[in-house]
Simulated assay, not measured.
Amino acid sequence: MVSIAALIPIVIGLFGAAIVIPWDKTIITEPLPRNTTATENCGLINDPKYRRRTVFFPSKGLQLEGWLYTPKGVEGRPPIVVLAHGIAGQKDMGLHPFAEVFAQRGLAVLTFDYRNFGGSDGEPRNWVSPKRHLEDWEAALDYVRSTLGAEVDVTRIGLWGTSFAGGHVLVTAAKEGGNISAVVSQVPHLSGFEVSKQSLKSRGVPQSVRLFLAGLHDRARDLVGLPPAYLKVAGPPGSNSFMELNDADMQLYLAKHPEHYMGGWQNRVLARLANEMSRYNPIHYVPKIKAPVLLVATMKDTLCPIAVAHRAAELNSNIQLLEKDVGHFDVYLGDLFDEVSVAQARFLVEKLGAVVPVHEAAEALPLL
């Protein structure tokens, strides 16, 4: 009979091999270096209706990069809306069109990259963490209040977030209480528990376990000082990616991306996110929100279930629900983008008390 003492080195050896050797071909351990080369879409914009410049501010000892939009043709200091992206997203992945619509209608806008993404500092790259994201939202608000008071009205602040950040803005608004004047939450992540249940149903138990174990593998590598392990952000069904998308959704997801990414972004994210998703439930914060909320939900959303959006609307009378009979990624493009973004601008203009610029005076903005 083999003694326990004799088995210990074998167990340690197997554990060590599991840490060092990617046991799943979907796990990526090649380094993802930051690329600081400027891309063609990240510079100053001096539009007839607004101006955009790059700004920097600190978060937990690192520097975040943002774009600050200031409207033209308005008197006094405009209210400001703070924007950020969803899971593994950054500001050059389709946020500029929303910010432009808002700035054209008299709103100042700050959109920023989380730590480890885009123009912001931080290693390893493409680290998605709800806790870290929420800290960056706090840092953005601190920057607005401490630095931008001469340019914008810091007593009238709105929050705008999409997908994963659609949940972040709800959590942030709940924590901020009366300091936030309006919130737009677009196709939001509301319940990690419900998303995990839906994922388990669609992926099956073996594939779900595979995803979870990849997260543990990444954490184990971190504990022993090895480079991180990544999984794809988006991939086809069965790809062991965080978003398993059919061909149509994949095309929509990529359509809002630039030709060249800021920071050298790649389609991968630290696998440790697989061990955090189910514990992140922004819906628990919804009853505490004091600000008016426009919640934009899509009825064919396979990532953020519409039923959870309905539940959120029932939890707080300040929530106005806008539903569209499309999928998760349809709101970023084409005629639906035009419709949704203008509806959001109208909501923000009303709730933040923005002054419509002279160049927009002939274009009345009827309320929702």
Rank of each mutant, 00 (worst) to 15 (best):
N35E: 14
P227D: 06
A182M: 04
H284P: 00
F112V: 07
D24G: 07
R105T: 04
L141Q: 09
N46T: 12
P366D: 07
V355R: 14
S163L: 05
T298S: 15
G119T: 05
L303Q: 15
V358R: 12
A361I: 00
G73M: 09
R34L: 11
T26M: 00
F329M: 09
V154F: 07
L254C: 10
D24K: 14
A255W: 06
T155H: 13
M250F: 07
Q90K: 01
S208G: 08
E194S: 14
M1I: 07
F347L: 04
K300M: 05
S163N: 06
N316H: 03
A139R: 02
V187G: 01
F56A: 12
S191D: 12
G94S: 04
L216R: 08
R156F: 02
A173P: 00
A309D: 06
G353T: 13
T302R: 14
P33N: 03
L322F: 10
M243H: 00
G192K: 03
A5Q: 11
D222V: 02
I19G: 08
V269I: 15
G204I: 05
G119W: 04
D92S: 07
P97F: 09
Q186A: 12
A354R: 05
S317R: 15
T302A: 13
A313I: 02
A271T: 00
L141I: 14
H257C: 06
T36N: 11
S120G: 08
I19W: 08
L110K: 04
Q198V: 02
N246P: 02
D92M: 09
T39Y: 01
G66D: 11
P236H: 08
L348P: 00
P71E: 13
E123G: 00
N281L: 05
R203Q: 08
L95R: 05
L141H: 03
T29I: 14
N267M: 01
A364T: 06
L159W: 02
N240E: 10
V81N: 12
V349F: 10
L216H: 06
G353K: 13
I45N: 03
N281I: 06
S3C: 04
L213D: 02
Y280G: 03
I19C: 15
N281D: 14
I319F: 11
N240M: 04
N318Y: 01
G204F: 05
G73H: 07
M262A: 13
A17N: 01
V144K: 11
V286Y: 10
G215V: 09
I80G: 04
L333T: 10
P287W: 07
Q104R: 15
P22D: 10
H328C: 03
G61Q: 07
I180V: 15
